[in-house]
Amino acid sequence: MTSQAPGLWPPSGPEVVFLLLGAVAVGSALLVVTTRQLVHAALWLVVCFGALAGGYLVLTAEFVAWVQVLIYVGAVVVLLLFGIMLTRAPIGPSAGLDSGNRWAAALVAVATAAVLVTVVVTGFRSAYAPLRPGQGAAEPLGASVFRTWVLPFEALSVLLLAALIGAIVLSRTDIRGRE
């Protein structure tokens, strides 16, 4: 696979698209963790997830992309917005969204980034994946899920049920813990 790989530069067409989407995702993610308005953070999260979904499409994982859009953009962000509402967070800009150890956090994050980027660049400098459209479509993926991975899938459904019950128990005030 790596023997006939083209050079890193110039990037091919899909690569350019992916890099643009990646830049959008990283930039909106930065805005998520730096913005001064809670609701804006949630909205920037939508942008980030959307860009990632585009990235999945470029990587030929189309089913994952749609699921990403459906669950993340559709469900998770809505949930988060509900949470923001229910905790009576201020809608406008608020100053105190960052805690005191911001600089330590930035240091750790930059160090993490440096370590990770260094490692993956040294590790996968020459790795090349030829893109074959259709390999991530619903049909092969569904077949794989219900054929090979059916047991984890069922376990996952139990987990979802447990999470559902747990969320209900946690959020209802009239259910007390055992004394």
Binding site: P11, G55, F124, R125
Partner: peptide, 14 residues
């Protein structure tokens, strides 16, 4: 598609 691109984007996001 070079693997480096998505992996680097992922590292930055992380």
């Amino acid at each position: 598609m070079h693997v480096v691109y998505p992996v680097v984007v992922s590292a930055l996001l992380f």
